[in-house]
Structures are given as structure tokens and as C-alpha cells.
């Protein structure tokens, strides 16, 4: 149950050591229209359950890590 983030450089650390970078999203391609861009920028899956997300270890190694986290239970798994 422990809410800790796996940093590949520093190990399992308290989430407050990180800056949350949001859910991982695919940026629109070069020919994408405005609606596609707006959807990408402002809309989120905002999953209640497992989602792939970015965390930046700003009080640690200063690296970005991708984490698969359950936003309800805080369980973290390898994908």
C-alpha cells in the first residue's frame, strides 16, 4: 500500500520528492488539426486505476521517470 515512486536511480522514494508530470500522452502528428491539438492539450483520460505517467525527481537525481501507477490504490507495477 505504500505510496512510493520507483526512481531507477534513487530507489523507492516519497512522492513529494518528485514533481508530477501528468499522464503520458502522445503528441499530435505534424498534420494534426486544431481540435486534435486542443484535445491533446486540455483533455485527459484521468484514469481511476492504472495509468502511465511522468514523474520528475526534482529532490533527487533530476531525471524524468515513467511510472505505471494505480491512482486509487497507489500500487505501482512494471508494465
Amino acid at each position: 500500500m505504500a505510496f512510493l515512486i520507483d526512481c531507477p536511480n534513487c530507489g523507492r522514494r516519497n512522492p513529494y520528492e518528485f514533481r508530477f508530470g501528468g499522464e503520458c500522452k502522445e503528441a499530435p502528428g505534424p498534420d494534426a488539426d486544431l481540435n486534435t491539438w486542443c484535445e491533446y492539450l486540455y483533455f485527459n483520460e484521468n484514469m481511476s486505476g492504472f495509468q502511465q505517467e511522468w514523474w520528475y525527481h526534482n529532490m533527487g537525481c533530476g531525471d524524468w521517470v515513467k511510472v505505471r501507477r494505480n491512482t486509487v490504490t497507489h500500487e505501482i507495477t512494471e508494465d
Partner: peptide, 13 residues
């Protein structure tokens, strides 16, 4: 400044 550091690191990653 602090955000820039993250911002640069994000693109590198």
C-alpha cells in the same frame, strides 16, 4: 529557472 531545468530534462528523456 527551476521549471526550465525540468523542461530541458523532459525533452532529453
Amino acid at each position: 529557472a527551476a521549471v526550465t531545468e525540468e523542461w530541458l530534462a523532459r525533452w532529453c528523456r
